[in-house]
């Protein structure tokens, strides 16, 4: 389990690389363009996405933390503007269920194997 945590943390550290300008990018990559189809704000060219991009970079210049920005946008647009799920309660099933699925499968395969029997 610890092993997986290392994975996940290193993965996130890539996704949220920290360079000055890149902070805007990492935030907008994690925001869903609500008027587009399956794109993040970062990827989209729509007016909506452009506004959010401008807004986020302005907020960063005003020394707001990432949390402040997320919180503000959630209060305006709802949770669905956050593109990527975290490990909070409402997503727990999303992370746990596949692992359970896999473990049950492994159990069945091992039960079939000669050596183990």
């Amino acid at each position: 389990m610890k092993f997986f945590l290392v994975f996940i943390i290193s993965w996130f550290s890539i996704a949220y690389a920290n360079e000055a300008q890149d902070r805007t990018n990492s935030i907008t990559k994690n925001l869903r363009c609500l008027v587009c189809e399956g794109q993040s704000v970062y990827e989209s060219n729509s007016d909506f996405a452009k506004d959010i991009k401008t807004f986020v970079s302005k907020k960063i210049k005003e020394k707001n933390t990432d949390e402040d920005i997320y919180e503000f946008l959630i209060s305006k647009y709802g949770e669905e503007i956050i593109l990527n799920p975290d490990f909070s309660n409402k997503f727990i099933f999303l992370w746990i269920a596949p692992i359970l699925f896999f473990l049950i499968g492994i159990f069945f395969i091992f039960r079939r194997s000669n050596e183990i029997r």
């Binding site: 609500l34 008027v35 909506f48 506004d51 959010i52 401008t54 807004f55 302005k58």
Partner: peptide
């Protein structure tokens, strides 16, 4: 001018 007011309103367009 830059959409900031609209964002405060939670507007999409």
């Amino acid at each position: 001018s830059d959409g900031a007011l609209s964002i405060q309103l939670g507007a999409f367009g």
